[in-house]
Amino acid sequence: MIESPWPEISFEDRIGTASFNVHHTAHIVVDGKVCADCSTRECIVACPANLFVPTSDGGILFNYEQCFECGTCYMVCNREGAITWNYPEGGYGVVFKRT
């Protein structure tokens, strides 16, 4: 593994560089009951926004607010019904600037 020659910024600072116009209702809903039985947990490593966080009691904590709306999570998740995925209401969500 290559060592980084300079300090990496925290994930909070990293995601803070992108802009989000957060709507009060979640566009993605994760069913914790389905996740509780999931051992593979593809979402945790793959979500570029790091929005799937394992909890100490074996569950998954999900927060929709700083989401790129990319679709990775519903594509890698193999469990029917775990993720209900929609785009946010028009005008809300991520706003890219220099991409």
Partner: peptide, 12 residues
């Protein structure tokens, strides 16, 4: 080196 992150982004 020294490049400051202005925006992090993702897309499929």
């Amino acid at each position: 080196e020294g490049g400051e992150i202005k925006e992090y982004s993702a897309h499929l």
